Computed example of a mutant assay.
Amino acid sequence: MTVFAFLGALELGLIYGLVGIAVFLTFRVLDFPDLTVDGSLPLGSAVAATLIVSGGIGAMAPWVGLVAAFLAGACAGLITAFLAIRFNILNLLASILTMIAAYSINIRIMGRPNLPVLGEETIISQTAPAFAAMDVGQDFARVLLVLAVVAVAAWLIIRLLASDFGLAMRATGQNSRFVLANGGSSALCTYVGLAVSNGLVAMAGAIFTQLNGFADVNAGVGTIVVGLAAVILGETLVGSRKIWVLIVACIMGSILYRIAMAFALNTSSLGLQASDLNLVTAVIVALALVAPKMRKSGFKAPRPRLSLQKKVPAK
């Protein structure tokens, strides 16, 4: 595998690290199977691309596009939560309904199935002079920029889950009756959790669009599988219950997943082609699921669970 392919895999792994964190919030923290992410990622792409191409905001459009994408994805998550909580629709079905609706909404936003942003101002073009002054190559600059955005997002999520409200969110996924008995609102936790989760996925879509130069309505197909792969690989590697470790593990899992994909598809001896992408994905996820059971602890490695105990600072 060439250096260019490795950096490309690292860049994609970091972008989809946001998806891994989002899936961790819904599947592990809230215990809410959410397929909305397959519609949220292209939604963020569509919103960011439309703002950049329109030129109405000026030089701030690439950065405003990230914020607008997050808010659009949060709205999609809120709709899923509303259908599930207010109308008691099955979680999985509610997310599928939102995902299907997002497809048509994305086309409405862009006015077409795909929208190029080549030649427009992006976060890459605006930060390129600063990286050039530090004598950093363009490929490395792209990776460092994405790493900075992902690091800030991960830090904010860690702070959220370590707060009192985050403790209530973690309790909601394990025992919602416990939250209600202690005066909390499991519904509010679900609303916030799904909004933040889909906001992160939409922001990942906005970053992907600006780095690759286009937004496509079909870009979200298989997003949930990539997110699950990142979470499972990360949990397989760390086996810890600490929140910050699990969040970092999601990012590392996404990077390893992308590197494994790039290695498999760029190794001629394996005889794989680009059309085998789904096959390689299925094999990697299956291996990640089987790996914990193959550990030396008698095939009984437990899945890491979140600790509900909040550390009390020493006096």
Rank of each mutant, 00 (worst) to 15 (best):
G199Y: 00
A282Q: 10
G173P: 01
S176A: 15
V245P: 10
G234V: 00
I15N: 00
N88Q: 13
L237F: 10
A74S: 10
D135S: 14
I52H: 06
E121M: 10
E235V: 00
S45P: 09
C250K: 03
P33W: 06
A288E: 01
D31I: 04
F87L: 14
A154E: 04
I224A: 08
T190V: 15
A49Y: 03
Y257S: 07
A249M: 05
V283F: 09
P292T: 07
A286E: 03
L90R: 13
Q309A: 15
T236M: 11
G199F: 01
L270M: 11
F165T: 00
A68L: 08
S45E: 12
A46E: 07
I109K: 04
T80C: 09
L287S: 05
L147V: 11
A204M: 08
N175Y: 11
S275L: 07
D34V: 05
R86F: 05
S163R: 02
T236V: 11
V53Q: 02
A264E: 06
I96W: 08
L14Y: 03
T236P: 08
S104F: 14
D164L: 11
N266I: 09
Q309F: 13
G111Q: 06
N278F: 15
T223Y: 05
G55A: 04
L306G: 11
I89R: 05
L10F: 06
L156G: 07
G220V: 05
V245K: 12
A76R: 01
L194R: 01
S268G: 13
G20V: 08
W155Y: 13
T223F: 05
K310F: 13
K242Y: 13
P302G: 09
G44K: 02
